[in-house]
Simulated scan of single mutants.
Amino acid sequence: MNWGTKIVMSFILFVGLIVTMVTISMRQDVSLVAKDYYVQEIAYQDQIERIKNYRDLGENQIKLEYKKQTSQIVLTLPKSYAGKGEIHFFRPSDASLDARYVLRPDSEGYQRFEAGDFKKGLWKVKISWHENDREYYEEKTLVI
């Protein structure tokens, strides 16, 4: 095989590689973190206020734990909690796995979720509520 044939073969292989890479990249799911991302970005100052309100709670902050032995996710709210809110389990890698629940702690301030309902991996848990005319927001990372 002479050098001209080698150049042509190299060019054909290069073009084949580029076509393969373009095909693979076109089949990838490209989804934004949220469908209304730009609207949320504009209203972020309100979110900063919610986060500040949460941090001002001091010792009454919430806790989130994954208990492997009981296969449960336990959210601990202050016993004095009397507001209304929601918890959003956000899966960064797949938005179709996201789940939202209403905050309904028991008399001790615990709310339990079955870990089997969630796929293993990284989750962002977004907790928001309002109480006494104030809004609160906290975001925690959870690995199942």
Rank of each mutant, 00 (worst) to 15 (best):
I18S: 04
I7G: 07
Y66P: 01
P105V: 08
M9K: 07
L57R: 14
I127F: 01
V8K: 10
R27L: 11
M26A: 14
G83Y: 04
R112F: 07
Y81D: 03
M26E: 06
S128K: 13
I7L: 15
K67Q: 14
L13Q: 06
K79P: 02
F14A: 15
N2V: 06
L77D: 01
V39N: 06
D133G: 09
K6L: 10
G121A: 03
K84E: 13
A99Q: 13
I62W: 04
E139H: 03
Q47W: 09
L103V: 08
W129I: 07
G16N: 03
V22K: 10
H88M: 09
R55C: 03
T70Y: 03
G116D: 13
S31R: 11
S107M: 11
V30I: 10
A82F: 05
D98M: 05
G85N: 07
Q72H: 08
V125N: 02
K119Y: 00
S107R: 14
T70N: 11
V102W: 06
S25T: 14
W123M: 05
D36P: 02
I62V: 13
E41C: 00
H88Q: 09
E108W: 05
S25L: 12
M1H: 07
G121F: 03
S10E: 03
G109R: 11
T23H: 09
E131R: 05
S128E: 14
H88R: 08
Q72M: 10
A43M: 12
E41S: 09
I127C: 03
H130K: 14
K63T: 11
Y101L: 08
Q72F: 01
R55G: 08
D29P: 06
T70I: 14
H88Y: 15
L122F: 11
S80Y: 01
G85E: 05
V74N: 02
R134K: 15
T20N: 12
E108I: 07
V39A: 10
K84I: 15
